[in-house]
């Protein structure tokens, strides 16, 4: 097993914004090793979310290559990317993005159901994880009946219940107050340190940056600083 989980080489990405080309990434080279907790930081438009999306296979680069756990994403079809995301990655979104008509427990089970995990195992793993994340009593509630912090914890549970190689979090604290953000970050740190989950977040929240072991700063689509020696 390679020590490198993510390898981006010469990645460029340009968007069309009302027919005006906007360069989001220009020749980014970026490597993340197994077990790292990396925050991609930078002002709005710096390209951090674009880089996260390319690593997650949600978008494709104009040039350059993106590899995740030894697989070059450029070569994959949409279906193959779907399978890769399902089995190898976990996503945590800014606005939680839980399925509103499913309870927290059902949301966590849902992704395992896509994977074809047996019903008993699904139930057991989801219950156990929600209990670990302090949501045991909320398991039957739908997202609309949960606070922002509870929803984000349920989203984290959904993202990690499949034991992904990589957890990608896009502005995970954007809708949370500082207390809840701290709880979430403690959770992510625990996952990273105890279970060895590789985490990459895109954020402009200093608190999130403070919890990550490595901070990569982007500006105008380029990495301007990579502090890989810092500790939380």
């Amino acid at each position: 097993m390679s020590d490198v989980v993510v390898r981006c080489s010469g990645v460029t990405r340009t968007y069309q914004d009302n027919a005006v080309p906007v360069v989001a990434l220009q020749g980014v080279d970026f490597v993340v090793k197994r077990g790292e907790f990396v925050s991609l930081a930078g002002p709005s438009g710096s390209g951090k979310t674009t880089l996260l999306n390319l690593i997650g296979g949600l978008d494709r680069p104009d040039s350059g290559t993106v590899e995740v756990d030894g697989v070059t994403l450029n070569d994959l079809s949409e279906s193959e990317l779907s399978d890769l995301r399902l089995h190898q990655m976990g996503f945590v979104f800014q606005s939680y993005n839980l399925i509103p008509v499913l309870s927290a427990q059902e949301n966590v089970e849902f992704i395992m159901q896509l994977q074809g995990v047996a019903a008993d195992e699904r139930r057991e793993r989801a219950s156990s994880l929600l209990k670990d994340l302090g949501l045991a009593s909320m398991a039957g509630r739908r997202p609309g009946e949960l606070s922002g912090g509870q929803q984000q914890r349920a989203a984290v549970a959904r993202a990690i219940v499949t034991n992904p190689v990589l957890l990608l979090a896009d502005e995970p604290s954007a809708n949370l107050d500082s207390g809840t953000t701290q709880e979430l970050l403690e959770l992510l740190r625990t996952l990273n340190e105890r279970q060895g989950v590789t985490i990459i977040t895109a954020t402009h929240d200093p608190m999130v940056m403070g919890y990550s072991k490595r901070q990569v700063n982007l500006r105008d689509g380029e990495i301007v600083e990579d502090n890989s020696s810092r500790a939380a």
């Binding site: 030894g70 994959l76 890769l84 190898q88 509103p100 008509v101 896509l114 074809g116």
Partner: peptide, 30 residues
């Protein structure tokens, strides 16, 4: 298809039965 991805289990189709119907029914009342 990439060999590494080919080794991944295929997406389960069994989910499309009950859970899909359940989500469809609940979505109805949104």
């Amino acid at each position: 298809m990439s060999e590494a991805v080919a080794e991944l289990p295929a997406q389960a189709s069994s989910w499309s039965g009950f859970r899909s119907a359940q989500i469809g029914w609940r979505n109805l009342w949104r």
